[in-house]
């Protein structure tokens, strides 16, 4: 991979995580536990899909092969997606959705802060914008973590169950490609190792408020950087891409 390809891949990865997680959240639209929360999840989904849209536009420009953001979102297959494994996990229940979102928001919050000083000016601008939005998302999900964890026996049990299962996808958040090294050196990409301690601090602070314990099993999934996914992504893409592939000229 030359530096431009690596750069394209890096932006694509950030976009894909936003797109896939935004789509997952949008599945709650009209099914939220109550109206305000339904609106909240839909709003967060909208922010993420909006961020994905801008990032995909940027990626398409970097690639320079005439593909558009729609081509990238709708015409790539599962193995060509680089979103985090965490982002594609199913909603299961509200506790799962909140844990997945919280872990991801905390990561994005610290990542965007670093990306604000990226040498890629477009990426830096999108990180400033995204960072402002993620601050609200994180505040929302952190508050829910506390409410569920410190709530009833049932809510706590569900939260802990979700935590135990989803924790196994957290190492993948930080995974890097060998081609990233050059990008980090060039000041374009962030070395994910450098945000690990800040992320962990946020996570532990919230775990404490939510009375959560770390799962005994520390085994971790991996593979998203090579386009290897859990079985859930294919189903998600089938639904997300169906309309565009069936009616390629369809416009809003």
């Amino acid at each position: 991979m030359n530096q431009n390809e690596a750069h394209f891949n890096y932006i694509l990865r950030l976009a894909d995580t936003n797109l896939v997680l935004g789509h997952r959240l949008s599945e709650w639209s009209g099914h939220g536990p109550y109206l305000e929360e339904d609106i909240a999840m839909t709003n967060i989904a909208l922010d993420m899909i909006g961020q994905a849209n801008s990032l995909l536009q940027h990626a398409a420009k970097l690639e320079g092969k005439g593909r558009t953001e729609d081509d990238l979102a709708y015409m790539r297959n599962e193995r060509e997606f680089y979103n985090t494994l965490l982002s594609e996990q199913k909603n299961i229940d509200f506790a799962f959705t909140i844990v997945r979102q919280f872990l991801s928001d905390a990561f994005d919050f610290h990542l965007y802060k670093k990306l604000e000083s990226s040498k890629d000016e477009t990426l830096a601008a999108l990180a400033v914008k995204g960072g402002k939005e993620v601050t609200y998302h994180l505040r929302h999900t952190a508050a829910w973590m506390e409410r569920l964890g410190d709530g009833t026996e049932e809510s706590h049990a569900r939260l802990q169950k979700a935590w135990n299962e989803l924790w196994a996808y957290t190492a993948d958040l930080f995974a890097m490609n060998t081609s990233d090294r050059e990008l980090v050196k060039a000041g374009i990409a962030v070395d994910n190792e450098t945000i690990k301690s800040a992320w962990l601090k946020t996570v532990e602070e919230v775990m404490k408020k939510a009375h959560l314990t770390m799962p005994a099993n520390t085994w971790q999934h991996s593979g998203s950087r090579e386009g290897k996914h859990t079985e859930h992504l294919g189903f998600l893409l089938a639904e997300m891409q169906y309309l565009h592939r069936t009616y390629p000229q369809a416009q809003w």
Binding site: E36, E37, I39, A40, N43, D47, Y136, H140, A143
Partner: peptide, 13 residues
């Protein structure tokens, strides 16, 4: 506060 997210992206309830 009722909700951090309101009727549009820019508002809280």
């Amino acid at each position: 506060m009722i909700s951090q997210f309101g009727s549009t992206a820019c508002k809280a309830l």
